[in-house]
């Protein structure tokens, strides 16, 4: 991920090297989509969690390609370190079997597939119409941590504080719900 960061940042800044970042992006995107597809189709809960892990790592790599280093590291800290461990923990506490499990999916899979394809078609069409060949600015500067913190603690201080209260409420709520009395 870090070698990627250097190449991506060095090449994204210079116009002639942008194709390296592009190659990296398409590789990451391919990995992410394959892993996401495996995640929703696999018949083993722990495998699904591990595929989700791959998707989340790929998303973090995408942030780095976009120059959002702080968001990428936060993604790694929160998702890989906390959320995924929590999910795996939950999966194991609910006795995930080794091998193939039946009865993970509804019978009417085609309905879900239909909804997904239709949504995808609508979004794809509208995205193509709206941003057909819009390019990212070539001379973009990576967004530094200092900018992020300045922005959070000035413009977005109210949502930030609200979020703190939400997290505290979620913490207490989770304890209350899962507590064995």
């Amino acid at each position: 991920m870090s070698v990627l960061a250097v190449i991506a940042q060095e090449s994204a800044l210079s116009d002639q090297g942008a194709w390296i970042a592009n190659i990296f992006f398409y590789a990451i995107a391919a990995v992410a989509i394959m892993a996401a597809l495996k995640m929703v189709t696999t018949q083993n809960v722990v495998h699904a969690a591990l595929y989700l892990l791959v998707v989340l790592t790929a998303v973090a790599a995408t942030y780095i390609v976009l120059g959002a280093e702080f968001a990428a590291v936060t993604q790694a800290l929160v998702y890989l370190g906390a959320v995924m461990v929590l999910l795996l923990f939950g999966v194991m506490l609910t006795r995930a079997k080794i091998g193939i499990e039946t009865d993970l999916d509804h019978e009417q899979k085609w309905m879900g597939a239909l909804v997904a394809v239709v949504t995808g078609a609508v979004m794809g069409y509208s995205l193509w119409e709206a941003f057909g060949d819009v390019k990212l600015p070539a001379d973009q500067m990576p967004q530094t941590t200092q900018q992020v913190s300045d922005s959070i603690f000035s413009t977005y201080i109210v949502p930030f504080e609200a979020l703190s209260v939400l997290l505290l409420a979620a913490l207490i709520g989770a304890v209350v719900v899962a507590r064995r009395d």
Partner: peptide, 26 residues
């Protein structure tokens, strides 16, 4: 790599080993 968020990155990746340990355990 001279990351802008070096120490934060270190703390983030140090938790990846937990996933490996859970994988081994399961």
């Amino acid at each position: 790599v001279d990351f802008d968020t070096g120490i934060f990155f270190a703390l983030a990746v140090s938790s990846v080993s937990v996933v490996g340990i859970l994988m081994a355990g399961w």
